[in-house]
Design a binder for these strands. Structure first.
Lengths: 102, 102
DNA sequence: TGACAATATGTCAAACTTGACATATTTTTA
DNA sequence: TAAAAATATGTCAAGTTTGACATATTGTCA
């Protein structure tokens, strides 16, 4: 795969497997990352729509500002579970989530 | 909330919070569980559609039969990450996933 | 039926994710 | 501008999820 692209992802903390095709990540890897970024974005948008700061959102989620920042950045230490629970907590519906994913 | 319902969920290993309304789980809790079960079902269906046993699927995922069984049952020790990575690995598209969620 | 295959359940050490904290960087506002 | 507010980044102990294994239960079919 593209060495540069791989380095960028690895520098962000992603572990990139070895079975990827030469244009980039394996289909599954890239779909997974895309999906995660889509949810990150959705969370960021929902928060802004509700005029909340990361600190305010963190309190609603019993979490911390730093973790909210990581969620919105799609940090590799953030799970889909956390993203989805957060989206639901902030008022997003299953429909919203399904739309974000597509 | 309904004591019986709560016991059933807790017996399955779910930790049920205390801020729920009296008809059931909080909206977020139940939406999260619904969503997870929907993905579990989707994985089970994809596997059967492809005529795979849990052992065969487990090999494709570098996992084990017992974990596949837990995935398909929506066991609380199974993360959305694992479910979604598995769905992608078995050939489901983002579209499939979005549809399963709704 | 009985035996064989498939699926389910319980447990655990290793790996991963978490909120929290400290601190850095960026953005907003007076 | 400079100070304040908001967001980002690094680290870590505690909590959660993982594949693997053993074993139990359920399904299939001769």
């Amino acid at each position: 795969m593209d060495k540069k692209k791989k380095k960028v992802l690895e520098s962000k903390g992603y572990r990139v497997g070895s079975a990827e095709n030469f244009l980039g990540l394996s289909k599954e890897e890239s779909e997974y990352i895309e999906l995660k970024l889509a949810l990150s974005q959705a969370l960021s948008e929902q928060r802004k729509q509700k005029k909340l700061t990361q600190i305010q959102l963190a309190k609603m989620l019993n979490s911390s500002q730093s973790r909210v920042a990581k969620m919105e950045k799609g940090d590799p230490t953030v799970s889909l579970d956390l993203l989805i629970k957060s989206l639901l907590a902030v008022g997003a519906t299953k429909k919203n989530i399904a739309e974000a994913i597509n």
